[in-house]
Design a protein around this nucleic acid. Structure first.
Lengths: 129, 129
DNA sequence: CCGTATCCAGTGTGATACTG
DNA sequence: CAGTATCACACTGGATACGG
């Protein structure tokens, strides 16, 4: 649903990059990888400044791509918990390398996520599958 | 010059991602990594659909980040050749892994660049340094 | 609590025309 | 050839209000 004037949309890397490129996307993934399964409200508070619209949009997209899992609990009030899927693990691993590179290039003081993927976070996520 | 409502701008990964996220950016890097040093006009033809404005903008940015090297030859007419720097090599390596992942996820038929970094491309680039 | 629907402003992008 | 300058427009993303 963007510029399709060229064939970038048919290229795997571009597809993937377009996903990750979206605003807030990386941040959400980082938060989920460090915090583990998180409820919608909590996530919105963690990703400071994001609008509900964006958060929903991003989560839907990530869910559709099999990167995020959405667990709906029909209680009153309803509870929705988001977590990373197993698939996301592969991605986070690479993102982690990117993080390392970024730190070497730009200084390693203010990392916005642990440079080490928290194993527990992924385990918890996987359990929910 | 973008959304600074949160602290993403002070996070190395975010900084790096914001660079790569820009439209066409990945494509340009891929082209340069597979084709080696390329002149402005040729690059514009390879990255089909891009406007001169965008191409210039992106190249300037990548140059400033030390990812792309600009070689100006003051002939008549002038010749400008762009190539990847040594630094870009580290990046392309990771991008390559991302490419592999993308291919596994979305199918590996229409790769928009070789999944193997062309050593010659980087060598040639480095030479120009 | 977890969203969806609507409106609206800001800006990023492309097209076009022009210069060294 | 290799850009720069200008402009107009589409689209993204935020704010707000409302619904299950």
């Amino acid at each position: 649903m963007a510029r399709l004037t060229n064939d970038r949309s048919s290229c795997p890397v571009s597809v993937l990059m377009n996903l990750l490129s979206g605003p807030w996307t990386m941040y959400i993934i980082w938060m989920l990888s460090t915090s583990g399964p998180t409820r919608f409200g909590a996530l919105r508070r963690q990703v400071e400044g994001i609008s509900t619209k964006m958060l929903t949009e991003r989560l839907r997209m990530l869910e559709q791509e099999g990167i995020v899992y959405r667990h709906y609990e029909p209680t009153v009030p309803p509870q929705v918990t988001y977590s990373l899927t197993e698939r996301a693990g592969e991605l986070v691993t690479i993102l982690d390398q990117l993080n390392g590179l970024a730190q070497r290039w730009y200084g390693d003081l203010p990392s916005c996520g642990s440079s080490q993927v928290q194993p527990e976070a992924l385990e918890k996520a996987t359990v929910l599958l």
